[in-house]
Design a protein around this nucleic acid. Structure first.
Length: 479
RNA sequence: GGCCCCAUCGUCUAGGGGUUAGGACAUCAGCUUUUCAAGCUGACGACCGGGGUUCGAAUCCCCGUGGGGCUACCA
């Protein structure tokens, strides 16, 4: 039997890092096993679900390249893939359970429930539903129903038994049913609750492996008793560890970027994010860098750890730098171009391309290109304090700058190889180290103490700008 | 409160009875050089605590402690 897994987000917000990682593990498992990856939207919370959130989740998946075989925009034989379009199914199975006396109507108001819960807590008891509606006679039920009292359907938790979860990552985990109460399966608005809808859909969609966050482990016994009550076979369960913020609390918006797509805007490459989140809780030997194909080939559930992982932006940045360096330069140019145009106005694309390529080695994040390159795009760039005091005001600076200006005015062609000869000849003539002639030049043309290699910078800047800047540093007009 | 999960450098992790406890990010230093990066080399740096089991525990068991989750008409 072929593997079928699903990612089932609830559209109450964007696709965040934790969700993306769950989606990725499911996707990798499906691709590795040559099975199917299903995307199902769990939108049964009518007050919090939005179609906007559905859109951003889909965008996040697409940006990471996690394609689904069945789901929104794709469809498939087990649809629909939005839970709100499957209401009839849930209603039908809830009714079956009611008829078989495995579930019952409950008319307790939320207020009564809240009150009882409060009292239980005051008595330091577990705040469980007291099952008072379990004993309602059919006459009472009919009376309540015709009185149109709000009602829910609760599952009759089988007492006196233990439920065992055979988890692929954690092994056997046991729960005592008596500690679980008669939870609601159909809400008063007619919508199913998570535990019920997930079970019905996972069964109907023939899901073989449920790979999801650790936060669902405690929900699993509730789902298992539901499978048993409905007479269905269990899927395999695999609960993956959570992702934490630096304070060890569950990762959330207050730890920074909430949405995966925000990382794109911050200047991350999707392959860097993918590689990073894959390594959060999973690994293969000492390997750090994984291509998409390697991930698919090497991923297996046995490689997933049990320990929650703290999200480390520094390591993500390092990976991003790595992927920027190994990407096709033109691709990085394309990513930088709009930012540079926004900051410095229109410029020749060829010029932009040459500039960006000088900085490939020192970029960790795409937007860093902007502050790094001001002197290539405008003439009124800032001068660093140190560039002025240490290099431009050095005693021998005027002599060096003016000699450079004279030679660079004549050098032909104005290419780095020829420019290099000028510098070397001058250093030799003055009997000084190369750096002594380069430093003041760097300060004069860029206002900085650090730039890409000098000859490249000069070539890209062009003779005209270079001569003007050298003259300006000398306090004179171009010769 | 009850139940459940988890516990190796600051962070991600390898290691599942005998290891100099390995790798990566970060940090620091050196090399290279024309500055900054990149790259290379090196340094620093960890088995949560206590009891067992054992000739021998990071590793197995128990108890603490700490963190996280569930306990909703949220998923």
């Amino acid at each position: 039997m072929s593997v079928r897994v699903r990612f089932a987000p609830s559209p109450t917000g964007a696709l965040h890092i934790g969700g993306a990682r769950t989606a990725l593990f499911n996707w990798l498992f499906a691709r590795h096993m040559k099975g199917k990856f299903i995307l199902r939207i769990e939108d049964t919370d009518r007050t919090r679900s939005t179609i906007d959130a559905v859109r951003t989740i889909l965008h996040g998946m697409e940006w990471l390249g996690l394609d689904w075989d069945e789901g929104p925009q794709v469809d498939g034989p087990f649809g629909p893939y939005f839970q709100t379009e499957r209401l009839e199914l849930y209603r039908q199975y809830a009714e079956q359970l009611t008829k078989e006396d495995k579930a019952y109507y409950c008319f307790c108001s939320p207020e009564t429930l809240a009150e009882k819960r409060k009292q239980a807590e005051a008595r330091k008891e577990a705040p469980r539903y007291d099952a008072s509606c379990r004993k309602l006679s059919s006459a009472e039920i009919i009376r309540n129903q015709s009185a149109a009292s709000p009602m829910v359907i609760r599952f009759k938790m089988p007492a006196g038994a233990r439920t065992e979860v055979a988890d692929l990552i954690r092994g056997k985990v046991e729960f005592d049913n008596d500690l679980l109460d008669d939870f609601i399966i159909i809400k008063s608005d007619g919508f199913p609750t998570y535990n019920f809808a997930a079970v019905v859909d996972d069964h109907l969609m023939e899901i073989t492996h449920v790979i999801r966050g650790d936060d669902h482990l405690s929900n699993t016994p509730r789902q298992i008793v539901l499978y048993q009550a409905l007479g269905w076979l269990l899927p395999c369960f695999a609960h993956i560890p959570m992702i934490l913020g630096p304070d060890k609390a569950r990762l959330s918006k207050r730890h920074g970027a909430a949405s995966v797509v925000e990382y794109r805007d911050l200047g991350y490459l999707p392959e860097a994010v993918l590689n990073y989140i894959a390594k959060l809780g999973w690994g293969h030997k000492d390997q750090e860098i994984f291509s998409r194909a390697e991930l698919i080939e090497l991923f297996r559930l046995e490689g997933v750890g049990k320990t929650p992982a703290v999200f480390d932006v520094e390591k993500l940045k390092w990976l991003n730098g790595h992927y920027i360096r190994s990407a096709l330069p033109e691709r990085i140019v394309d990513l930088c171009e709009p930012l540079l145009i926004e900051a410095y106005g229109d410029h020749d694309v060829e010029h932009i391309s040459r500039v960006v390529k000088l900085f490939l080695d020192r970029l960790k994040l795409i937007p860093e290109i902007v502050p790094l390159t001001a002197y290539f795009f405008k003439d009124d760039f800032e001068f660093e304090e140190k560039a002025v005091t240490k290099y431009l005001k050095a005693p021998q600076a005027p002599q060096i700058l003016s000699a450079l200006r004279d030679h660079l005015a004549k050098v032909e062609p104005f290419k780095k190889e020829e420019i290099e000869k000028v510098f070397k000849a001058l250093a030799e003539e003055l009997k000084v180290k190369l750096g002594v002639v380069i430093h003041p030049c760097r300060a004069a043309v860029s206002g900085r103490t650090e730039t890409p290699p000098m000859y490249d910078v000069l070539e890209v800047l062009g003779r005209e700008k270079v001569l003007v800047r050298l003259s300006k540093a000398l306090g004179t007009r171009p010769a």
